[in-house]
Every structure is written in C-alpha cells, then in structure tokens.
Nucleic acid binder design. Structure first.
Lengths: 131, 131
DNA sequence: AGATATTTTTGTAATTAATATAAATAGATA
DNA sequence: TATCTATTTATATTAATTACAAAAATATCT
C-alpha cells in the first residue's frame, strides 16, 4: 500500500470539514473549496474524501440522495429532517447496542452500528405551527 | 391523488419480493421478473417499488451502493457484511430507542429510526478461519 | 540544490443508479 | 362496448460517483 503524500488540497478539505457542523456533500465541499483552489477538480474532492474516510479522520454518512461527510470523530448518530433534509448530530447514549445485539444474534459478528433518526427539526416544526 | 389501479407487473413484483429473504436491488428484481414479463421496463420496476414503499407494503433500505427492498413488514433492522455485502435481518429488541431519544433530544421531534448493523457474516467468518 | 521516483491533481470521459417523458396499452366504470 | 384514467414501454436525461492519462506537486537521495 503506497505511502500517503501530503497535499494542500487534502489539508484544505479536512480543515473545511472541521469548520462545519452541517455534514456537507461532496458537491458542497467542491463548491466552497473552489474559493481557495479555483481549479480543483471534483474528482480530487471525492478522492480525498475517500482517503480521509479510510484513515478514519472523517466519516461518511450514507443516506437518501448524496453521501455526506462529517469530521466529528467522537461517537454519535444523526437525525434527518424529513421536511428540509437537514442533518443534525445526536449525542445519544446508545453505546452498547451493537455489543448487546452481537451477543444475542447468531448469524455473524456484529462490530458496530449506524443509527439514523428521522422526524421534524425544530425550525420546520415552528414554520408548520405558524402556517 | 389518483386512485391506484391494479397491474399484473406490480403484483408480480410484490410476490417476487415476498418470496425472497435477501433484500434485492431494483436491478435484481428487474433481471428476475423478466422471466415472467420479458418486455418489462426498468422504469416500471422502479416506479412500482416506489409505489409499494408509499403504500407501506414494502420497505426501502438505503445503504452504500444501490437501494434494496424488503417485503417483511414486521419491525426489524438489518445487518450488512462488510466482506461479501450480504444483508440479513436482525430481529432485535430496540423498540423504544426513537422514543427515548425523542424525550432526551431537544432539536426536533424524533419520529423513528433506522439501525444498520455491520460486521462479518457467519459464512465469511468461516472462510476467513479456514484460510 | 539538482535529479529522480512516486503520488497527487487536473480535465475529461465513462459508469451507475435513478428519474422523466410521451406514445401505446391495460384496467376500471358506466 | 365505449370511455376515462392509470400503467407500461422505450427512450432520454439527470445525478452521483468513479476511472484514466498527462501534467504538477511532493518526497527522497546524492
């Protein structure tokens, strides 16, 4: 496996992701990073996002539509608003769920789990109530 | 909203899904259903899968790669093998997780959640141990 | 620093998954 | 049967992502 070589683009992508709380898509990263690197290619963004996921520096969130990326490394889950589609962090105490299921379930070794909550975010709820 | 009209293709897609335990993708459904309807269009498969999801007769499982579909309506979750990619059912007692989080989390109304477990399935584990 | 080796980027093309559309067909209703 | 409306088919299109080759950037060695 070839050694990972430094690149300014990758560093910038990482920093950009760390500065955001809203789990951007590859395309959002591309749009914003272009201010610093006007010639950056979308392929470069995808490639570096994949690399960062591989090294464990960021996480990929797969859901309806485009994948999203998250630089928060502390264990947590996500909430998606079914109205506006925003994605918020959920720091819920669900630590040992995978472990519990691993003990009870006999068709394989459960190593972890992803939990995606859904519903209505506060902002959409407010708008609905006002209408 | 227009009334739903019977179609042989939709019935066949539903029956096919009910006969399987492995959560096929739209393309797998298309390939197999062609034996009965050689001229069926992939668009028809997608459209009917969406309709069946809307009526609640089947569920859509969004994950890495193509969406998968599941005719089992009893509440359960899924396990994906990170080696072979197979998807298995997990009948785990996680009933009130969404409810619990809804009470503790203040940025919106949590209506439900999807849980995706991952790890190594028994079959892949066996193969790895033999090698 | 200069030369060399290897990775990364860029620009573009290709692929995959899914949706859209319009004419033809099938199902429902009177 | 006649008519109305939904569905299918065939095809085109969009969206998300990956692949590739030449050029540029980074790391290593002397």
């Amino acid at each position: 496996m070839a050694a990972l070589k430094y690149s300014r683009q990758r560093e910038s992508i990482k920093n950009y992701l760390c500065s955001r709380e809203d789990h951007p898509t590859a395309d959002m990263v591309y749009t914003d990073i272009r201010r610093e690197f006007p010639n950056i290619s979308l392929g470069t963004v995808y490639r570096n996002l994949s690399l960062l996921v591989e090294t464990g520096e960021i996480r990929k969130i797969t859901m309806d539509g485009a994948d999203r990326f998250d630089a928060k490394t502390t264990p947590h889950h996500h909430f998606t608003c079914r109205k506006c589609g925003c994605v918020l962090d959920v720091m819920a105490p669900v630590e040992n769920l995978a472990e519990t299921v691993d003990e009870a379930w006999e068709y394989g070794d459960v190593e972890g789990c992803r939990i995606e909550f859904y519903g209505i975010c506060s902002r959409c709820k407010k708008i609905l109530n006002e209408a």
